[in-house]
Design a protein around this nucleic acid. Sequence first.
DNA 1: GTTGGAGTGTCAACAACACTGACATAAGCT
DNA 2: AGCTTATGTCAGTGTTGTTGACACTCCAAC
Lengths: 169, 169
Amino acid sequence: MDRRGSSSHSGEALLFLTDEQLRQGIEAMFFAYRGFTADPDRILSDLAYGRAHHRALHFIGRAPGTTVNNLLNILGVTKQSLNRVLRTLIADGLVQSAVGRQDKRERHLNLTQEGRTLEQTLSDAQRARMRAAYRDAGPDAVAGFRTVLEAMMDGEMRNSYNRLKDTGT
Amino acid sequence: MDRRGSSSHSGEALLFLTDEQLRQGIEAMFFAYRGFTADPDRILSDLAYGRAHHRALHFIGRAPGTTVNNLLNILGVTKQSLNRVLRTLIADGLVQSAVGRQDKRERHLNLTQEGRTLEQTLSDAQRARMRAAYRDAGPDAVAGFRTVLEAMMDGEMRNSYNRLKDTGT
DNA sequence: GTTGGAGTGTCAACAACACTGACATAAGCT
DNA sequence: AGCTTATGTCAGTGTTGTTGACACTCCAAC
């Protein structure tokens, strides 16, 4: 892919920053993200749910007891948009909303047993693909993968990401 | 699953495949993709265009003269969905559609000068972020990034991706 | 040479999910 | 009491995906 055996050191060190390399990275990101969401999407389409429901289930499962506002910040959508999704999940008994004890304005969100089951199913499908990709690529590639993704995030998203990462460990 | 501080080589080598690691990877992918599309989205929202228009412009620019059907396979949407986008782009003079010479059923798509200009603007914004992320991460991380993304694609998408990659060089 | 099937592109209608704007309610804060 | 915060809701709109129906073109079998 990179012809011309340049003997220049500085030239060689920056070859990965050419427009062509960046464009390939962009396209890789596009195609990979499709694969990334393909398995959960397949499962969800049978259930009258969509990707938005998956995201809500994921982050509620990840941060049990989180408030609506917190979820809003993580997901980066409007409350009207989130509310539509949340309403159906609560009505279907997958998510439980509880009035805050200290601050009664807040609603704390948790997965019900049924919600946990669906979240697990979706998570398993997505992790299976991720695991296969990780195993194929190897630990060094995975470390690089994570490094680039983190560098690609907006500042606010990186904060959300790191907060979640720390709670998990 | 995996105790830490293990002196076992095989145990340590697989630490990057734990559920927690995979979940972090999933979340990194989610947040990074938002960053990935943020800049072009901002530009497009001022123009009454959306992400679908960007994708069409990108791949037409990448493979000039491509047919609608080819574009369909790359984008992975229905022809009706693509057609709506294409119609506005053609009406607005960003894309030109030419009946095939050999097979008159086909339409060959090309960017007009105006289309090339917009594609360039969008591309520049997206590449700028990509370049910054690449530079921060370094060449080794970038190589790993690409390796994992390619492993994450579905088979068909990987074919599309590789075909495009080869034409670019 | 006409007919029928496959390939290709277009139009119309509908669903999912995002957005804005406006407003209501309840609870906390000064 | 008055201001702010957190949440929920209604109404309207836009983008992007879907299915269904249909027209045009090519090619091959009859």
